[in-house]
Nucleic acid binder design. Structure first.
Lengths: 234, 234
DNA sequence: ACTGCTAAACTGGTTAACCAGTTTTTAATT
DNA sequence: AATTAAAAACTGGTTAACCAGTTTAGCAGT
C-alpha cells in the first residue's frame, strides 16, 4: 500500500475517475431514480481507491443534486433521469478553474442586477450596513491605502441588500478570486480609487432614493473603465 | 465521549460555531494575511469538537478563499484584510438554503445572458450538442412523457456554448434544485411542453444564425409564462 | 406456505491511529 | 558567540477501526 500526499490536481483526477466510474455503474446497471448505489466500501474496492476518495466524490455529486445519501442506510440516485445525469456529470468533470474574463463578465452581470434589486428592496438595516462599508472604503482611499477589499465589501453589501440569496452566494464565491487577481494585477490605482469614491457615493444615493434605473446606470459607469482594463489583461 | 449521528442542520450549527471561533481568533490575535492558524488539533481541543469538524469548517473557509492550508505545514490566513474577512464570514454564516423565488430570478438573469453569449460564441460542436439535446426533448414531449430534465439539459447546453465557465458552473449549481422543485409543483404541463418545443427551436435557430438579440428575445418569451407561474407558487 | 421475531450482516458517519514532510529546538563544532 | 547538523516535536493528509442505526436472512411457530 503506497502512501503519498497527492497534489490537488492529482486528487481532482482521482475524484473525476471515481465520478466516471459511478456514472458508468448507473448506466450499465440501469439504475433509476431512488435506486441504491453499492456501498462506499465496495466502490472503494472496485475502483481500487480509498474509501475517503469515494466519499469525497459522492459528496460532490450530492452537492450537485445527483446523489442523496442517507445515514446508516445507503447512497441513492436522486430524482433525475439518466440523460440529465450523464449530461451533468460530463459538465462537472470538465469544469476547470474559471478564467478571469468569465469571472469579471459574470460579476458585472450579477451586480447590474443586484444593484437594481437593492434599490427596490433595501431595508433601513441594509442602508446602514452599506453606509458603513462606504465610509470604511472612503477612509482607506483618503489615507492612500490599498482599498480593494473595502471596495468589494461595499459591493457585497449591495448584493445582500438585493434580497436574493442565490445571487448573494454567487457574489461570495467569485469575490475572493476577484480580490486576489485585482491585487495581483494592481487593477485599482490611486486615481481610479478617487473616482471610485464618487461612483460608490452615487450608487449608494440611488439605492437610498429607491431609483433602480439610476442605480444601474451608476453601476454601469463604475464598471466602464474596469471593463476595458480587465479585457486587456489576458 | 458521546457519540451520535448529527442531522445536517446540527452539523451546520457546529460548523458555524467553529467558523465564528476562527473569526474571533483572527480578530483577537490580530492575525494578518499569511499568518498561521493554530493547528487543527489545537482548534478541536479549544472548541471541544472533533478534528473532523474543524477540518470541514476550514475547508469551507478555504472554498471561499479566506484560508489556505499547506500540507504538512499549517493553515494560513489568505491575502485578505481583516474587515473583508469579517464581512464575508458573517455572510457565510448567515447563508441559508436559497428560496425558490431567488433561484428562478437568478436563473432568468443568467440565461438571458448565456443565450446572447452563445449566439455570439457558439462553435459547430456546441451547435451539435444543443441540437442533440433539443431532439431528445422533442421526442420525450411528443411521447407525452415528462421532459423537465431534457428541458434543463438543453438550457445547460446553451450555458456551455456561452463560453463563460463561471456562468456554466452557476447554472450547474442551480439546475438540480430547479428540477426537483419543478417536478414537485408540476410546473411543466403537457400543453406548456408543446409550446416549449416551439420556443426551444426558435432559440436554437437564433443561436445558429448568430443573432444575439433575437435569441435573448426568444428566451424572454420562453420564460414569460414560467415567470408568472413561479411567482404564484410561494 | 405464511407470518413474526431475532440476530447477523451491512450501511454511512465518526473517531482514533498513523504517515511523511515541515518546522522548531537542541546540541555539537568551530 | 555563531553556524550547522541532527533530532524531536508538530503539521495536514490518509488510513483503519469503531459506532449505532438500517436492512436482510434465517428460523420458529403456527
Amino acid at each position: 500500500m503506497k502512501l503519498e500526499v497527492l497534489t490537488k490536481n492529482e486528487n481532482k483526477k482521482v475524484e473525476n475517475f471515481i465520478i466516471k466510474g459511478i456514472r458508468d455503474l448507473i448506466n450499465y446497471k440501469n439504475l433509476e431514480p431512488g435506486d441504491k448505489l453499492p456501498s462506499e466500501r465496495m466502490l472503494s474496492e472496485k475502483f481500487e481507491v480509498s474509501r475517503n476518495n469515494v466519499r469525497e466524490a459522492i459528496q460532490k455529486l450530492e452537492f450537485y443534486g445527483l446523489l442523496k445519501s442517507r445515514p446508516q442506510s445507503g447512497t441513492f440516485v436522486a430524482n433525475i433521469g439518466v440523460t440529465a445525469m450523464n449530461g451533468m456529470i460530463e459538465d462537472i468533470i470538465r469544469l476547470d478553474e474559471p478564467d478571469f474574463k468569465s469571472l469579471v463578465e459574470t460579476r458585472i452581470l450579477l451586480e447590474l442586477k443586484t444593484v437594481k434589486l437593492a434599490a427596490l428592496r433595501r431595508t433601513e438595516e441594509d442602508l446602514q450596513k452599506m453606509e458603513e462599508a462606504l465610509l470604511a472604503y472612503k477612509q482607506k482611499v483618503l489615507n492612500g491605502e490599498d482599498a480593494v477589499q473595502e471596495d468589494l465589501l461595499f459591493h457585497l453589501a449591495i448584493a445582500k441588500a438585493s434580497g436574493n440569496s442565490t445571487m448573494n452566494t454567487f457574489m461570495l464565491i467569485i469575490t475572493p478570486e476577484i480580490i486576489t487577481k485585482f491585487e495581483k494585477y494592481h487593477v485599482c490605482d490611486s486615481d481610479l480609487s478617487q473616482k471610485g469614491i464618487v461612483d460608490h457615493q452615487a450608487i449608494f444615493d440611488a439605492i437610498k432614493n429607491e431609483d433602480p434605473q439610476l442605480a444601474k446606470q451608476k453601476m454601469k459607469d463604475h464598471f466602464k473603465e474596469l471593463y476595458v482594463y480587465c479585457y486587456n489583461i489576458e
